[in-house]
Nucleic acid binder design. Structure first.
Lengths: 229, 229
DNA sequence: TAGGCGCTGACATAGGGTTGTCATTAGCGC
DNA sequence: GCGCTAATGACAACCCTATGTCAGCGCCTA
């Protein structure tokens, strides 16, 4: 990769997160730490107000340096490609939002790029197993509930097709065994439960905050799953 | 003077004035007009929204991705979610470009949104079969070759691990049986062939246009595939 | 139809830019 | 002092990039 591409990339990376560690940059661009230092220095010399916080990383001190930037063809291509997998691995709600984002992207591309994009689209095909179709549409709501830490009420159908109502505190979403699962603290059972999204019949998202103050990280729960799915 | 210094310099110049003519830039940095054009192009390729007004000069187009027009949380969430599937269903090249696109999106989000996004990221996990790891990195190149209709040379390894060189005209990419396949007209065999991307050892992309004028659409080829993969 | 303008393509060549490695320093907490 | 992390110096090798020149193209206007 070009040095210039990298410098602009790092600049955007710095703007996109609060802190960015030198190692992260090195990994992302496949370069040595030494080169990261050089790049950081170069950016500093261009007048970009960079600073460093021990054990956190680099950050941009104030204001935007770069104007909001548009996407290049490669990036647009990548976004387009992944839209194809959406139907299989996400749900309608995500599809809606993804498509709307992608439309914004397309709308700012030049005509020539748009044409390329459409051609490309016709030349890429997918054939995915039928069983992967997810026709629920809760992913988006759940994403919001998780980041807002709000209690949600769900109607859940168990193996025996019995439906029960639960108030739960969502701590994460895990995709395993080719299905989405909601991991949440169940008020009824007073323990963490694993709800398969396919079996959720309905969701209501309250505005009420979590009652339980401390929750384990989802990564902990992950460890309890059987491996090799 | 360094090219990097100059590019950032031009960027600041453009940000500081309404219009800047190519000649002014050429004079200021003591370079030829030709080089100015190249620099302008380079900035454009970084996604900086440049435009030109006859008899006035270049300027930065405001408002493309300014926050009001920008992405909302739901859209950002959706983009984030799909990044997770990349490693499994695309390859390194696509991952790179997707990540860089996502960074651009993140960089225009407000701090509060950025925080939410990072929290969310920690609460979503994936467990996918090992066999889905794609460690080739040709998808991007192939996308470009397909839309540019350029002949490519590939080193391909067949079932018996014999390596052969082929000149091919790529007509499409198909993902089936959980693998990427390049569909291309093979100059050697004079017919359409199906190259599994995992078995491609190397790719060189020439600048030479297709020799065969008419190609069948990929969708035709699709029909010949066994169903229900 | 000619001419000007903005821009792109092609090319060759010099010249320096870029990068990793290894060693070293500075600062900090214990 | 010691270990740790962040950062800087020195260096060599190598690649390849940056650049000017010249020709050509599309577009507009007169």
């Amino acid at each position: 990769m070009n040095r210039i591409d990298r410098l602009f990339g790092i600049l955007i990376l710095l703007q996109s997160k609060k802190y960015t560690s030198a190692e992260r940059i090195a990994e992302q661009y496949g370069i040595s730490i030494r080169t990261v230092y050089r790049d950081i220095k170069a950016l500093g010399e261009q007048g970009i107000p960079l600073s460093f916080e021990p054990s956190k990383g680099y950050f941009i001190v104030q204001g935007y340096f770069l104007p909001p930037v548009s996407f290049n063809s490669d990036e647009a291509n990548a976004l387009l490609l992944m839209e194809r997998f959406l139907a299989a691995f996400a749900d309608k709600s995500i599809l809606t939002h993804y498509t709307s984002a992608l439309n914004k992207v397309k709308s700012v591309l030049k005509t020539a790029q748009k044409d390329k994009l459409e051609t490309l689209n016709e030349h890429i095909k997918l054939q995915l197993p039928e069983r992967l179709k997810n026709d629920f549409e809760y992913l988006s709501v759940l994403q919001n509930a998780i980041s807002a830490k709000c209690i949600i009420e769900i109607d859940y159908k168990n193996n025996k097709a019995e439906v029960s109502k639960r108030d739960v505190e969502a701590i994460g979403l895990i995709f395993y065994a080719f299905n989405w699962h909601l991991i949440a603290w169940c008020h009824l059972r007073k323990e963490y439960r694993d709800f398969k999204l396919n079996n959720i019949i309905n969701i209501r998202c309250t505005e009420i905050a979590f009652r339980k103050t401390e929750h384990m990280p989802v990564s902990e729960y992950m460890k309890m799953l059987p491996v090799n799915f």
